[in-house]
Design a protein around this nucleic acid. Structure first.
Lengths: 190, 190
DNA sequence: GTCTATACACTGATAGAC
DNA sequence: GTCTATCAGTGTATAGAC
């Protein structure tokens, strides 16, 4: 089963880097040093099956990683967000927005809907649960927690997308700075 | 010149929706009710020229829109960000991250570098200038203003990417909420 | 598990008529 | 400005040998 694992890893790397449409089966095969037709041994369903499997795996890994990071960070929201950011930055950026807008419409609708649900449960839900206690006094806090979770994800994904050359500082420091300004506020406190 | 304008608009809509790789010249032609070969009258350079032209146009439009919105909003950062958000939400989401990571690598490097520069000047620079005064006391405030600008863009683009069905509230209200929590801070003030 | 060979649709692009 | 016709190249996918 080591061969199958290699295939999935190569496919995941390319799909997350360039997106569904921009990756060909020949690209994946070439990265593995095998022929394109050989991929059908591991994924009889072809390109779409490969993409769905790899995406589902990646999302599940994110769910586990985020839940562990948050639960081990204690009760403080700032520490929870830092831990979540560190997890996200340790992984190749999933480009959630591209996934939803460009990749999903290119595959069968039933599979797209399944993946959309898993994406919510894996990326949004764990963060939403972390934000909710901070909004105790707010009305409609549940939907607001979801919005904050989405915004947090957008920010960290943006940081993760930056080229290595962008800053001499590590990405983690940038993420921490953004988390701090978000929790403490940009406006100087009186 | 009306025909050329129609071509560019159709191409822009499709490219921003699906990305470079997922759009074919036949898709664009079909949207216009003409044949694929006819596109070469308007863009002799083919698909790449079409993409570069519409992307450049779109970025320039964003620069003008953002600069106008921010300068007309007065001196208050909150109002400036709200105005910038309203402008961004009035336009189809450019999916900046996908553009950089998936689309740019697919075209000639010289063109990609040109577009990257224009993207910075059009999207980041105007917001960076708005953030800078709010960081007067910070060390290294210039680079931090750039990071805040990038984070702001990620957030608003995330909001703009949401499906219409996501919330009964308009996207503008969600953006305002996120701007408020960002400026005032999530932690309740003492 | 991986290969070769091949089918077949689609893609970007060019030439030339109207 | 748009068309038809056509091409070479590339894309996914299948069949069957090793």
């Amino acid at each position: 089963m080591a061969a199958r694992e290699r295939v999935l890893q190569a496919a995941e790397r390319l799909f997350t880097e360039r997106g569904y449409a921009a990756v060909t089966l020949r690209d994946i095969a070439e990265a593995l040093g095998i022929r394109q037709a050989s991929l059908y041994y591991h994924a009889p369903g072809g390109k779409e099956e490969l993409f769905v499997q790899v995406t589902e795996r990646g999302l599940e890994r994110h769910r586990a990683g985020l839940e562990t990071a948050i639960s081990q960070a204690g009760d403080d929201l700032r520490e929870q967000l830092r831990a979540a950011a560190r997890w996200l930055l340790s992984q190749p950026a999933m480009n959630f927005a591209r996934m939803l807008r460009s990749d999903m419409p290119a595959i069968r609708e039933s599979e797209a809907n399944r993946l959309r649900l898993i994406a919510y449960q894996s990326l949004i839900a764990p963060l939403e649960a972390a934000f909710r206690p901070a909004l105790l006094d707010e009305p409609g806090r549940s939907s607001k927690a979801g919005s904050l979770a989405g915004a947090f994800l957008s920010i960290i994904e943006g940081v993760n997308n930056l080229p290595e050359s962008y800053s001499r500082e590590p990405k983690e420091a940038l993420a921490d700075f953004l988390i701090d300004t978000w929790i403490d506020g940009l406006r100087p406190r009186p």
